[in-house]
Design a protein around this nucleic acid. Sequence first.
DNA 1: GTAAGTGCAAAAACTTTGCATAAGT
DNA 2: ACTTATGCAAAGTTTTTGCACTTAC
Lengths: 158, 158
Amino acid sequence: MTTTQPFADWPSHLRALGKRVTRQRVAVLQAVDAHPHATAERIHTAARELVPDITLQSVYIVLADATAWGLVRKLDDVPARYETRVGDNHHHLICVQCGVILDVDCVVGTPPCLHPPTGHGMEILSADITFRGVCADCRAPESPRPDPESQPTGGTHG
Amino acid sequence: MTTTQPFADWPSHLRALGKRVTRQRVAVLQAVDAHPHATAERIHTAARELVPDITLQSVYIVLADATAWGLVRKLDDVPARYETRVGDNHHHLICVQCGVILDVDCVVGTPPCLHPPTGHGMEILSADITFRGVCADCRAPESPRPDPESQPTGGTHG
DNA sequence: GTAAGTGCAAAAACTTTGCATAAGT
DNA sequence: ACTTATGCAAAGTTTTTGCACTTAC
């Protein structure tokens, strides 16, 4: 279950961008693919299964580059989380209790899928939507679900 | 323009919560009020105009407390940003060039103002919506607008 | 061969914590 | 008085950087 499998052909993606294909980059990208919404450290752990001597610092560098190139999306949180689903305008559903993050497809297909009130003079490119709530497992009386992939975020907006 | 003015009666808000009214708390809350979306350090600078010897650590503590009490809302970003508009379900518009953050009222009044696709079993409490785009000033050819209140966030979602 | 990427170690940036003092009720 | 909050300093956590070595092209 922890074995990282290729869901995407990362070497081709890198080559298409004119970037070099390194074991480290492929390992990080596959790790993010296999562990959506994972932190840099978790990605490091997963990437080490493919490249045992990759350092955490290199993971950070690869993640920053890949984010700049549009291969991964960085979710602002502390610590930051990463995912490989980019450009498909999906949104996030975070459980305020256990911190689990679920992907939900946008009901509208193309970004921006939502429009703010006009009059601000801004050209809107996209809409990031995060729903906060309580997941099914946390609502169940007996299973507090300590999800290993995420920690509580503690949202306060209502 | 940097003089912090009271937009809200923070002593009353604190007393209503059974919390003590200290010069530091009032100064921080007024600073956040006067500088929406400011970082802890910027809030510290503003708060020092009212309480010259307040430390940055105390600012962090007051911000964390106030967030837990629902007086301020913390925007997850690095560094974190804070605002006093809570519970009115407004959303944010971030310029990907200059990083300026604008508040936009929600077109629907009550949270959650938006509903995700069903079937995930999650009880939705709220929806945080962040629009990304290019503000009017950054679209103008000659004014790159180095806004002092915010730094670029570098959003990549589309 | 050359430019780009990585490892290493160190530091920068941001945030939290423990304990003695000070301040609010 | 009693309890809570703050100042101080230190450490914790997350992320970035500089330089030599290695690797992909």
